[in-house]
């Protein structure tokens, strides 16, 4: 449906230009439409209907993460606030425990879009499993659903259903974790590094931040730390148990 919109608008524009009368023309196409759709964009401005987020790049003490989901108006702005009907469901997440929803979903007067902000909650379960919430738009007295999907070059994206997948896990090493320098990636190693050196986890997403000198610093410091804590362990003193590999129970071998 959306793919045809530019053609239709172009036709309207052409019609307006070709009108020989000097009478003011007031395009009235949108006055007949008052519709909403999910309009969330990924890389290359491609419409997405799913987002996959993780807490691992959030500070270790962060317990919430807000995910704004943009709802877009198709039609003319109104002078009144208008309620949008959104249902939220999940097979494995519970409202209040795993996520919090806004009290209402309202397109403010004069606006063409608004963000429906879902707040995700960091739970221990997220370190071992992924959860998903599914948002779905419905028609109501204010809005129709004029289009339900958008065909794109690579895929077809839904414009009435939006899924948020979330976890506290890595699916792969972050971009700036160089395994030549820091060894094979593991979530446990990563969390140890961030804790001991007080590194913002998000730094590991940017090689311009986590430069070679920085990675060498991290490497030397963390290996030294593990060595010192291991010596304490061997001497029967208190030590940081996070230096132990959860699978083997032995001190982590970094590189």
């Amino acid at each position: 449906m959306m793919r045809n919109m530019p053609i239709y608008l172009a036709a309207l524009a052409a019609a307006a230009v070709s009108a020989s009368s000097c009478k003011e023309v007031h395009p009235d196409y949108f006055e007949d439409i008052s519709s909403v759709y999910f309009n969330n964009r990924g890389t290359g401005n491609v419409l997405i209907d799913t987002t996959d987020v993780t807490f691992v790049y959030e500070p270790l003490d962060a317990v919430r993460m807000e995910v704004p989901v943009t709802v877009q108006l198709l039609g003319r702005a109104s002078s009144l606030d208008r309620e949008v009907s959104i249902s939220v469901s999940s097979d494995n997440a519970e409202e209040g425990t795993d996520y919090i929803l806004p009290e209402s979903a309202v397109l403010p007067a004069g606006e063409y879009s608004f963000d429906y902000v879902v707040t995700l909650l960091r739970t221990a379960e997220l370190q071992t499993s992924r959860k998903e919430v599914r948002l779905e738009l419905h028609a109501n007295e204010n809005f129709t659903l004029a289009m339900t999907q958008m065909e794109q070059t690579a895929d077809t994206a839904s414009t009435v259903v939006f899924r948020i997948v979330f976890s506290d896990m890595f699916t792969s090493a972050p971009a700036a974790w160089d395994e030549e320098i820091l060894g094979t990636f593991s979530q446990h190693k990563f969390q140890l590094v961030c804790k001991v050196l007080d590194i913002d986890p998000d730094d590991f997403n940017d090689a311009n931040v986590m430069t070679l000198p920085m990675q060498m610093y991290v490497r030397e410091e963390i290996m030294s730390y593990i060595s010192e804590e291991t010596a304490k362990m061997n001497a029967g003193q208190d030590f940081d148990e996070d230096i132990l590999d959860p699978e083997t129970g032995d001190p982590i071998i970094f590189v």
């Binding site: 050196l197 007080d198 410091e221």
Partner: peptide
């Protein structure tokens, strides 16, 4: 225990 290491982002 681990506070004797200079915090990373102070460097």
């Amino acid at each position: 225990r681990w506070l004797d290491i200079q915090p990373y982002d102070e460097i």
